[in-house]
């Protein structure tokens, strides 16, 4: 079978991918890496900013009435269903190539995921604390900020940081379809058969991902 033929070619192919080399475009690649990171940052920030109010309105125990909660939950569900790649393609086609499309696509995706997590976290807070504060005369807003949000804050922070990590990984792929970032150059390197560059890009991406994850772990530990 072709499988075994291919298997035999493994060492030869691996040799073409190594050692990683930047092909003389170090500055360009680093620039693109930065842009990719920017896309991820922008997407996460925008997504988070929208996700908070949406999540709050979708939580049954915090929303002003159950219908609002249901409506926003449906919005969340629909948004989460769309694959980010498709979203990015649509944005690219519509707003033209470039990082803006990528950031917007990631923002929508992040919004979907984060708002669900926010809503779920809110629904799981200990409502008895809220009763205690209400018994001492606090208003609903005070109860929300003083008890509900305080209980939910560590989880929300952890989720957002994680979303940044995930978004960076996605951002590297979005470049392939033209939404800006290093993915585009990855595709090019592949097309011109410069595989060492492919490996180099891989190394860059993995390095950033590991760094982000380390920060995420650290932050999560502190903000427990």
């Amino acid at each position: 079978m072709r499988f075994f033929e291919g298997f035999a070619r493994l060492p030869e192919v691996t040799a073409r991918f190594l050692p990683p080399s930047d092909g003389g475009h170090l500055v360009l690649l680093l620039e693109q890496l930065l842009i990719t990171f920017q896309i991820a940052l922008a997407g996460t920030l925008l997504g988070a900013v929208i996700a908070l109010p949406v999540g709050v309105l979708a939580a049954r125990n915090v929303a002003p009435n159950p219908t609002t909660a249901k409506v926003f939950r449906t919005i969340i569900v629909v948004t989460r269903g769309i694959p980010e790649l498709i979203l990015a393609i649509v944005f690219v086609i519509v707003t033209g190539m470039g990082p803006v499309a990528g950031a917007l696509a990631l923002a929508v995706g992040a919004m979907g995921l984060l708002s669900k997590l926010v809503a779920d976290s809110l629904e799981e807070t200990d409502t008895r604390v809220q009763t205690a504060l209400r018994a001492n005369g606090a208003t609903e807003w005070q109860v929300f900020f003083g008890a509900t949000l305080r209980q939910v804050a560590p989880a929300v922070i952890a989720h957002v940081i994680y979303q940044l990590d995930v978004n960076f990984r996605s951002a590297t792929l979005l470049g392939v379809v033209g939404a800006g970032g290093i993915g585009f150059y990855l595709l090019n390197a592949n097309r011109v058969l410069q595989f060492e560059v492919v490996t180099f890009i891989l190394v860059l991406v993995v390095a950033v991902v590991l760094a982000l994850e380390a920060i995420a772990v650290l932050l999560r530990y502190i903000v427990r």
């Binding site: 920017q38 896309i39 940052l41 922008a42 996460t44 920030l45 925008l46 990082p99 803006v100 950031a103």
Partner: peptide, 22 residues
């Protein structure tokens, strides 16, 4: 440290949004 990190991310995010001209 935690506050610094979080602020750094938020600032970076805002800067990214501006840079990308969103």
């Amino acid at each position: 440290l935690a506050t610094v990190i979080m602020l750094a991310f938020v600032t970076a995010g805002a800067w990214a949004v501006a840079e990308l001209k969103i």
